[in-house]
Each structure stands twice: as C-alpha cells, then as structure tokens.
Design a protein around this nucleic acid. Structure first.
Lengths: 243, 243
DNA sequence: AACAATATCTATCGTTTGATAGACATTCGA
DNA sequence: TCGAATGTCTATCAAACGATAGATATTGTT
C-alpha cells in the first residue's frame, strides 16, 4: 500500500488513516477489544484511560496515537459494534427481504417466518456473550444519544425493526409503515431485548444464572406461544370486522 | 427531638442521623433532587461533585456533610427512587392483592384487571417525566448491580412482577411461581418498560417526540389488543388439551 | 545495509477530581 | 439573651485524569 506519513499536519504523531504496519493493526484491534470490555462494564465516565490502556496491554499514548482521544476510542467501539451486529443480522435481513418478494404468502408461512426471525434475533441479542458488554454502551446512547447512536440506529436498530415490521405488516394486512404495525413490532422485539437492560431483574425473578442454552430455548418457546396466539386472533378479529 | 451531635466520632462534621434543623432538611432534599437530574442525565461517572453541588445550589462540602461521599449521595438517590416508586405502586399492588383474595373470578374480570394493571404501570413508567431521569440510574444498576439495586429490586421490581404474575397465573390457570407464568409476566411488563431503555430507538421509529398523552394511549390500546388475543387463545388451547 | 515510515516509550503536563480543615454563620431551645 | 448544636463557607489538599513532547525501537521497502 502507498506509504503515508504517521505525522499529522499539526505535527502530532498519529496512526496513518490509510493503514499502517501489521503490528499497528494488531495493536489497534487489541485496544478496541479491551475498550469494549471496559466501557461495557463501567460506562464511559468511569472507564479511565489508564484502565483502558492496562486492559489492552499498551501505554497511555497509544490511545491518542490510534484514536486521537478517549471519545474517539468510544466512537471506534460504536463502529465495531455496528459492524459486528450488521454481520450477524445480514443473513436474517436478506432472507426476510427475499422471502417477502413473493406477494401472497400463506398465513402459516408468514407466522413461521416471523417466529424464525424472532428466534434468530434472540440468538443474537441474548445468546451471544459479546452483547453483555455492549448493553451499557447501547443504553447509554439511548439515554443521551451521541454520534455513536446514529451509527447503531441507522445500521442496526432501524433495519431490524423495518424487516420485522414487513412481516408483521403482512400478518396484520397493513402496510409496514402503519403505526399499529410499528407499535406491535417494537413490542415484539421488545420482549427479547428487554432481557438485556432488565437482565438482573429477570434473572432474579426466574432464579436463572444466565440466558444460555436451555433457558434461552424456554424464552423462545414462550414467545412462540404468545405470537401464535396474538396473530391468530388478530386475523379472526379483522375478518369479523369485515363481515 | 432529642439533640444529637453533628460531629461524628471521628471528628468529622456530619448531618445528624436523627435529623437536624429544618434548614438542613430542605438543603438535603434539594441536593437529592439535583443529584437525580445530574446522575440521570450523565450517569455516575460523568457526573462530577462540582456539577452536583452547582445544580443543588450548595458548596462542595455540603455533599460530604449530608452524604459522606459521592457514592453515599448515589445511594440516597436510590432510596429516594425506591420510595417514590413504592408510593406510586402501593395502591396498584394493594388493589390487585385485595381483588385476588376472591378465589374464583370470571375470566373477563381477570383480563380487565390485568389490562388495568398494565395501564397504570404504563402511566407510571412511561407517563411520568420523573422516570426519564431515573432510567440511566436503574439500568446502570441492572448492568452492574450495587447495593442500590437490591433496594430497587426488593421494593419495586419484584413486587410488581409478583403482583402481575398473580394475575397471569390465574389466567393461565397455573401457580404464580410457574416458570411459564414468570416468563409471560416478564414479557408483558417488558412491553411497557422497553420504551425506557430503548426510548430513542422507539421515538425515531414511531416519529414521536415523546410518549405523552395521546401517544401513551396508543401504546396502551395496542397492548390491550395483544393481551386480549394472547389470553383468549391460551384458554382455548388449554381446554383443547383437556379434551 | 540503509533509511524512511511507523510504533512505542518515559517523563511530564495542566486540569479536574473527590474530599477535608477549620473558620464563620445561622438556628433553636433554655 | 445566650450558648450549644447545626449548617455553610473559603481555601486547600493529594490523587487521578486525559493528553503531549520528544526520545527510542521496530518494521518494511529499496
């Protein structure tokens, strides 16, 4: 790759934007991984640059060398989370969109697709330990949105809601942009996602150590029963309205 | 009241545990109110003692005089939140318990009670602006529980879940301690509570400025339809199973 | 091998932090 | 009115913070 200067115009030494040596790439990745842990566990304000550097196994100036400042590292973490989530969700989004190209789908098929969508969402949001460390991060952004939130919303949250709303819209026989469809969709996804911010409450109520394996399967099963009931009666109610 | 010393045994000057003059009570209350705002907006780590003192209109040593340290103020806030929530929820808990003293209640009555329960919960959790500032607080405690969380869980979260589970248990014809009842209950309450941690996502999806007035009514209406459907089919499914 | 570019390090900085000492002000009961 | 108890203030502290300067080490290309 073409060589660039590691010295910025203002004379400060920085990791070249075009990329550097392999060693630098490795160090940068280690810092982000460490930062996700520390920010996730302590939040932005209580995570000190010394904690971050120690966890990453680098010296303090390395944080400035690669990220300009603490805030820059935080945004790099948001970018990382966004990319990781996009990777996981891509197949789900693509398959859902492809399947919905077909105008008329049997109701049972749509319900199956919705249940499968929710199962895979549960696997991603609850089944992966990596998300434990992202919860405080994401929720801090919900409470006081920064530039980091725009990334997460535009590339993760909104696409997930839109894809699910497409399914829900079909089942309710309304456009995905319908307000009731949006509300139903948010509350559908909310039944999975709630175990992240309310994790400790839920674990204590259920007497569970975590949401792994069989316990996650129980969550899915319960949600399946609710969804099957919810969209079964919705159709009956809608048809009674037409008569 | 019997007079006590404002000087602790270690010689440090502190607000007497038994209470002090009216002026001191007023100042303490102002500090807690200010701290709820600041902690709620910035979180524990990013809220400095200088910000807290300024917002309360006191000098720095006042924080130590009344709360020993920053952490002590934080715990005082947790106590305050817990008491405020208990106040709001007391009538709801009492009425629900009293109504369930009656062994056999018509199903329609139980459903109405559940819907009313959820409506009032929505009024408390989403309708009161005061809770906006408590969200970051409560969620930080979910992510990394401290002594503050024990207070909130034991006196607020758990009682709410138990009361709601009692209703859900009746409707599902299972004991409130049943795991499926607990899961259903958590996901029921979750559909309301999710709009707190996922507030910004939900507002952007819905194109709403907030969850006030008519918009809160829309949330309730949507939830009503879901719940009516969910518990209507549950009964049918259960009766078919018996046959 | 040489040298430019990148990467890491030590030492240090100015600022901010949470907290304290002791002086001074106000309140309240006798 | 007086004095004890409570409450507030200024000044200051030690420690920690986020960040920088410039020296030194390593990498990679010619």
């Amino acid at each position: 790759m073409p060589r660039t200067k590691a010295v910025a115009e203002d004379g400060r030494r920085r990791h070249p934007a075009a990329g550097g040596y392999a060693r630098g790439d490795d160090t940068r990745a280690r810092i982000v991984a460490a930062a996700l842990d520390v920010f996730g566990q302590y939040g932005f304000g209580e995570a000190s640059t010394r904690m971050l550097a120690e966890k990453a196994g680098v010296t303090l100036p390395a944080l400035q060398y690669y990220f300009d400042n603490k805030e820059g590292l935080y945004l790099a973490c948001a970018e990382h989370i966004t990319q990781r989530m996009e990777m996981r969700l891509k197949a789900l989004m693509d398959e859902t969109a492809a399947a919905l190209m077909q105008r008329e789908l049997p109701r049972a098929r749509l319900t199956d697709m919705l249940l499968d969508f929710l199962d895979r969402l549960a696997d991603i949001f609850l089944g992966e330990r990596e998300l434990e460390k992202w919860t405080l991060f994401i929720i801090r952004e919900q409470a006081q949105p920064t530039r980091a939130f725009d990334l997460i919303f535009d590339r993760v949250m909104h696409p997930v809601v839109r894809a699910c709303a497409a399914l829900v819209g079909r089942l309710l026989e309304r456009p995905a942009s319908d307000r009731e469809v949006k509300l139903r969709t948010l509350m559908l996804i909310g039944r999975i996602v709630i175990f992240r911010p309310a994790r400790e409450t839920a674990l204590r109520v259920l007497g569970w150590p975590d949401f792994a394996g069989d316990r996650l399967a129980l969550v899915k099963k319960s949600l399946h029963a609710q969804v099957a009931a919810e969209f079964s009666v919705s159709r009956h109610a809608k048809q009674r309205g037409r008569t």
